[in-house]
Amino acid sequence: MTGDQFDAHVTGRTITFRTDTNPAYGIEAYLPGRRVMWSAFDGTCMYGTWYESEGDICFIYDDDPAPKCWATYLQEGAMWATFINVPDGTVIYETDADEPLICNNLSS
């Protein structure tokens, strides 16, 4: 997916992801302005931003400046992605789960 395609698919949504071995890998809220909030279902959330780089979608989180880049694809209306920072990286799949994003570590 290009950055524009990714933006059109995710902005304003909260998406739950799974892997082949973990049905609850994580959840991410996609906010306006290419901002995100990620949680791995442990109640700890991280704010970040995303950008397109060489055809991949990369994320930088406020508490970790190292980019996390994913090759993203859209298939039959659902997104899946491969983590490209390491060889044979994690593959995640968008699910149809409607999970809430709960952040115990952020004040309102």
Rank of each mutant, 00 (worst) to 15 (best):
L74P: 12
L74G: 11
P65N: 14
P87N: 01
M1G: 05
L74T: 11
T49E: 02
F17H: 13
P67S: 04
T14N: 08
D96N: 13
I27L: 02
D88N: 14
Y25S: 03
M46F: 11
P67C: 01
N22H: 12
P87R: 02
E76S: 11
F59H: 03
R35N: 05
T44C: 09
A8C: 12
S107G: 13
L106G: 06
I92D: 03
Y30G: 01
T21N: 12
T72N: 09
P32A: 07
Y25I: 00
H9E: 12
S39C: 04
R34V: 03
R18I: 10
Y30K: 00
T90N: 04
I60E: 00
G77M: 14
Y73I: 08
H9A: 15
T95G: 10
P100I: 11
A78L: 15
T82H: 12
W50P: 00
R34K: 14
Y25P: 03
Y61G: 02
L31T: 11
P32F: 13
A40P: 04
R34F: 12
C45N: 00
C69N: 01
T14Q: 10
T2Q: 06
D42L: 06
D62R: 02
N22C: 09
Y51F: 13
Y73F: 15
I92H: 10
S53D: 04
M37G: 00
F59Q: 00
Y51H: 09
P100L: 11
D20R: 10
M46V: 11
G48N: 01
S107Y: 12
D56C: 11
R18L: 01
F17V: 13
P65C: 06
P65F: 09
Y51I: 03
T49Y: 00
D96V: 09
T44W: 14
N105C: 07
I57E: 03
G12V: 13
G89E: 06
C103D: 02
D63Y: 05
Q75L: 15
Y30Q: 00
G3F: 14
G26L: 07
A71C: 10
M37F: 08
G43Y: 13
N105T: 04
I57D: 02
Y93I: 12
D98T: 09
K68I: 03
L106W: 15
